[in-house]
Design a protein around this nucleic acid. Structure first.
Length: 572
DNA sequence: GCCGTTTTCGGCCCGACTGTTTTCAGTCG
């Protein structure tokens, strides 16, 4: 439902833009869509309470349209608009170098309304003779169409991150490069990344640009200039590089990190101080410049404390910075326990001792062994009778480890299709910690799947709900859950919700995690490790929690271990 | 279409790159 409304507003914006409507009306629809997306809550719920106009960027007109659409399933405004501008024209905007003006041109001059008609016209050489077009523009559009056809959408964080590290090392090795930093959505640690934005500080840009566009994995140079170049790599990731003099590195990095909306906020703030802010400098009305070599100087100039990149989504961080109420964000080093990990007792690769050693190496003070319960056959789930033998092994390893690491016997118990749990209550009661998770029947109706999860939350033996929505990036959307109901129940029963740190899950996502915190729910950031190296994925989970404005207080396994253990004991 | 510590009307962020142009329009981030 949320996504449908957001898509609806974006479609209106696109069509208005092709129609040639004043840009600010278009921006208003996009801003409202962004704002609703960042809400993290249920739009229908806000609508039911008559609070739509309290959402920033949603005023009377857009609220009425949302109301009409929810109430009737239709929107007269959009229908009228589509009578003027074919709805399928928005497809064209996905093509690189093709914006609303050209889409309108192709439609009005050649009657093109969709991608296949566009491709036919481009191949027939019909585009080059249009005003403002030429042979190069035509072939760029063809290239854009081909790129679209093989596009793998946004790259998951887990794929973009390691490649970016390699690229940074490559750029650092270029003579004359004084600083290099990743920016963009990757620095903000968004779950998926469109392309890589990189900023380098160097006195002479040309050699850096040549090295960048000459990288061995580059298959296509999309643009090349003195301060900015962009390329496409063989594995379909694109990257752009800004090169500025080191004394301008701060403004450039701030700019390239975004988000766009965050940058707009900063520029508004700069204007109020009589300054104009760009990627190269602050500028006074008389034209003189204020240079910033570091990003901290940019924020300082605006009278703001440094805002961590993960917060820069225009979700209230600038207002909070002005008010001095930015949260002290959780750090990776704050996590003291791994509470979700698998061993050879189910589908893990390591035995209990090996996993314990791996956890110790990473500085953990506690480790929960949480193998799958029996009904998850594919994962070799434990039978009830296995639990006693597993407990004996855990006790033996604990004796070897002494006080260095506290082991907990737990399990990841399956929430069955009817909402009952895989193990009976007296078995769950014998365990130190219980995670309940959905793995199957994720396609159930909203009402049914929500009830399933609520039933698990209400079970007094359940401590944590694992990867609550079951989403898999990029292929599977999560279950259609009433998240607000989940948050309320979790808060009431003091059940923690997991941020599963695996980059293909990141579940809860950032927006949901923030709503959870606001609802008084505790989080648990877990890697769901099946091997030693999986334990290092914690980093991505912490980043997601930081995007949710999470402090150590919000996260169970960032508490001192004694507090965590007594919390668990108090629930047994 | 939205919004208010210069405003309830008149604003709404800034610059680089490219291609088609004889100074600029379109697109992108």
């Amino acid at each position: 439902m949320n996504q449908q409304i957001i898509d609806l507003l974006r479609k209106i914006a696109d069509l208005l833009e092709i129609k040639g409507e004043v840009i600010y009306k278009i921006l208003a629809y996009r801003k409202a869509a962004d704002s609703l997306e960042n809400l993290g809550g249920d739009i229908r719920e806000a609508w039911r309470q008559g609070k739509l106009t309290e959402v920033p960027g949603v005023g009377k007109a857009i609220a009425e349209k949302i109301d009409e659409w929810i109430t009737t399933g239709r929107l007269e405004f959009l229908e009228k608009l589509q009578a003027e501008v074919p709805g399928s024209l928005v497809e064209l905007l996905q093509v690189t170098d093709l914006g609303p003006k050209k889409a309108a041109l192709f439609w009005k001059q050649l009657g093109i309304t969709n991608l296949s008609e566009l491709e036919a016209a481009a191949r027939a050489g019909q585009l080059r003779d249009l005003p403002g077009m030429g042979e190069k523009s035509e072939s760029r559009i063809l290239a854009g169409l081909e790129a679209l056809a093989r596009r793998s959408d946004r790259a998951p964080l887990g794929k973009a991150w390691p490649f970016a590290q390699e690229l940074l090392a490559y750029l650092r090795s270029i003579p004359g490069v004084q600083q290099v930093q990743i920016g963009g959505s990757l620095r903000r640690m968004s779950a998926t990344v469109g392309d890589l934005d990189i900023v380098a500080g160097a006195s002479h840009s040309l050699p850096v640009m040549q090295a960048f566009t000459g990288h061995p994995d580059v298959v296509r140079i999309l643009g090349q200039g003195e301060t900015k170049s962009s390329v496409e790599f063989s594995h379909h990731l694109s990257a752009q590089l800004w090169v500025l003099p080191p004394e301008r590195f701060g403004t450039a990095l701030q700019y390239a990190t975004g988000s766009k909306d965050h940058n707009v906020r900063l520029r508004e703030l700069a204007l109020k101080k009589g300054l104009s802010l760009s990627e190269s400098a602050f500028q006074r009305p008389d034209g003189s410049e204020i240079l910033c070599a570091s990003e901290a100087e940019v924020y300082d100039q605006l009278g703001l404390p440094f805002i961590p990149p993960e917060l820069r989504e225009d979700r209230g961080e600038v207002q909070a910075a002005l008010a001095g109420t930015l949260p002290i964000l959780l750090e990776l080093s704050d996590i003291r326990a791994e509470l979700h990990a698998h061993t050879t007792w189910s589908d893990g690769k390591l035995d209990i001792r090996q996993l314990a050693d791996a956890a110790l190496q990473r500085g953990h003070k506690a480790l929960a062994i949480t193998d799958h319960s029996g009904s998850l056959g594919v994962a070799g789930g434990l039978k009830i009778e296995d639990l006693r033998a597993q407990r004996a092994e855990i006790d033996a390893v604990q004796a070897q480890l002494g006080d260095s690491l506290r082991l907990l016997q737990g399990c990841e118990v399956e929430i069955r299709a009817d909402g009952s749990l895989d193990f009976p209550d007296q078995v769950l009661a014998s365990l130190d910690i219980v995670i309940a998770s959905l793995h199957s029947s994720l396609r159930q109706e909203r009402q049914q799947v929500t009830q399933r999860l609520l039933k698990a939350i209400e079970n007094p033996h359940v401590d944590i709900i694992g990867h609550p929505t079951g989403r898999l990036i990029p292929n599977r959307e999560g279950a259609d859950l009433d998240m607000e109901a989940i948050f309320q129940a979790a808060a009431q029963h003091q059940v923690a919700l997991e941020i599963n740190a695996h980059p293909s899950r990141l579940d809860l996502d950032d927006a949901h995690a923030r709503r959870a915190i606001q609802s008084g729910v505790s989080l648990s950031i877990n890697t769901d490790a099946h091997s030693a190296s999986d334990l290092d994925l914690l980093f991505f989970g912490v980043a997601t929690a930081r995007r949710a404005w999470s402090t150590t207080e919000d996260v169970l396994n960032a508490w001192p271990v004694e507090r965590l253990l007594s919390w668990l004991e108090s629930r047994r």
